[in-house]
Amino acid sequence: MNPSFKLILIILISFEISFTRSLTANCVLIAVCLIYLMIHKIKLKTLGIVLLIPVIPAVALSITIAFFTPAQDYHFALVLFSRMFAYVLLGTSFTLINSPIELARSLEQNLHLPSKFAYGSLAAFGVLPKMKSTILTLQKAALMRGITLSYWSPKLYFKALLIAMNWSDELAQAMLSHGYVEDTTRTYAATIPIKSTDWAYMIVPILIIQPLLFLLP
């Protein structure tokens, strides 16, 4: 399925379930996403980790809604509980299967996002692991001088911003030296087409989910 269309579908559904209170629809979404991920042979371990993360907030929020609100609405507590898992599974149905580069290409070609946004952010996401280790290095280096740089210290953010500035300069120069020119028409090495099936894959699920969301409890 076309990545842009898939993203739009996922965002639309996530947005809709935020405003509706259908336990059935949430459960159907969870089941469909699980089946979809299984078909794409996602490792059970990865899936397990994904499902483990929302457990604490989901349980805590449903307990609060069920026992500490004036209405003590058990149904709504379950809706919120299932909603968290639906969000996560909808998201992973995208992120575990489509790569950022596919999305960037598709957004540029299919939705006409300016290429500087598509490739600029992609370039930045490319150095994400390096950024993580650099932040750790900053903190460790400060510790060696007896200074603790915690998440509330302005100095830590200041240093991180200086790094972001330097790297953005370097990455932009690297892109320019590879022949990237912003605001010009580009040719595509890999074209991402919009097929008629892409439209069907987007519209049919949206149509199916509506009655579930609005008619079933």
Binding site: K116, F117, G120, S121, A124, V127, I163, A164, M165, E182
Partner: peptide
């Protein structure tokens, strides 16, 4: 493009 990279970073 540099601003966009900077903001993302």
């Amino acid at each position: 493009v540099r601003d966009i990279i900077f903001i993302t970073l």
